[in-house]
Design a binder for these strands. Structure first.
Lengths: 216, 216
DNA sequence: TAGATTGTTAATCGATTAACAATC
DNA sequence: TAGATTGTTAATCGATTAACAATC
């Protein structure tokens, strides 16, 4: 697979392509042109073709793209077929809520363990995943070699928990705590989730519109 | 306040500025230069100054920016001091989890009501917010005039619930369901939350790195 | 005044769009 | 073959960065 220095702009669009192709596939559509897909997704046909061509030739001149093949290709480009192993660091409300409702397995991930420092939680099983004492993290993970750590501890404990994830040897952290973790992106990939940013930008857009209507 | 056609790129950075200024303010820093702020946030000083100058002159030549004043300015630019009223549409796990842990009040929003169609939930109070029958939404909201609807129903019920929000007269929807709502952005501002996109782009980055290391 | 740092204009860079030859 | 639609190059647009005069 071709994959030569893909811009962040393209990377951020990949999950969206994947979602739309999921829908289109479920709707039973077999073939789709860049134009049709672009219209649905509010992009331009050019952009769709440019984006896909970052990774190879998936289309067929005159016919468009095979939906199933493209869907599978993007799944593989993202790495959703790698069966990456996940550990949950922090089995409080957020951690357990993700465990129960996010659907890691359905999305192609494998949750191998959860950790917490609250002794009341040790040994509990949530959605098939056992919660262990964080002090035993290294031991528990010795043979599991998890790829991704989900950081769902209170923000005040983020750095500490991050150090444990580093020691376990995860290659990427999905960070739900606020504040930066202070690990270099060279060693570990960090993806920060700031759900409130999304509400704030919604809020901005609303405020801007109101000002336009009723004056500044 | 100046506010002439702000690009989405800038709008998406505003919440980040706000978060960092929160931290800096809490740390007791009184004054900060565009260079220092840029270094912390991994931006350029030019970009920071360009961004702030979209809205007015907040700095002082030779001294930098007053942290407290800038923090307050951005809060107001975003509209976090407007006390926007929120309704929760769908009081299932997601809705209740947000009600209990997101901290709407702390962030400057006021949750006035929650709605669901499950009769078992009618009358229940979660974190001070009453859950009503969605059938009574119009009636309940008649005098409240909510600004924002949080859409946390199952995805299959999204369109239906969206129609109710429209009838109630909200001006913006914070959408947690998957699939697009099919309302025109002219009538209602929609902000989609796709938390899985973030895990997928993390996954992409991990896969890309592995391929670089071990060959494609 | 001298030093620092802003606000703002000009230059650069990168991403998006348009165009079109290649080809199914 | 003719029509459609891709893959890809060239043109445009917008966002980021650099530079510097203004000014605290």
């Amino acid at each position: 697979m071709r994959r030569s220095f893909i811009s962040m702009a393209v990377i951020r669009r990949l999950p969206r392509y994947y979602r739309y192709l999921n829908e289109i596939l479920a709707a039973g559509v077999k073939q789709i042109s860049s134009r049709e897909l672009a219209d649905r997704m509010d992009l331009t046909a050019s952009q769709v073709r440019q984006d896909f061509n970052c990774f190879g030739d998936f289309g067929q001149q005159g016919c468009g793209y095979d939906v199933a093949a493209l869907h599978q290709a993007i799944k593989s480009i993202i790495g959703l077929d790698q069966g990456y192993k996940i550990v949950i660091m922090g089995a409080g409300r957020m951690g357990c809520s993700l465990l129960e409702h996010f659907g890691f397995e359905r999305r192609g991930f494998q949750v191998v363990a959860a950790f917490d420092k609250n002794p009341e939680l040790f040994g509990k099983v949530v959605n098939g995943v056992t919660i262990y004492d964080v002090a035993k993290a290294e031991e528990v993970c010795a043979h599991m070699r998890p790829d991704i750590g989900v950081l769902t501890v209170p923000s005040s404990e983020a750095k500490e928990a991050c150090a444990v994830l580093k020691k376990i040897g995860v290659k990427a952290i999905w960070n739900f705590t606020k504040g930066e973790l202070g690990v270099s992106e060279d060693e570990i990939i960090v993806e920060n989730v700031h759900i409130s940013d999304s509400l704030m930008s919604l809020c901005y857009q609303l405020t801007e519109k109101e000002e336009a209507l009723y004056g500044a």
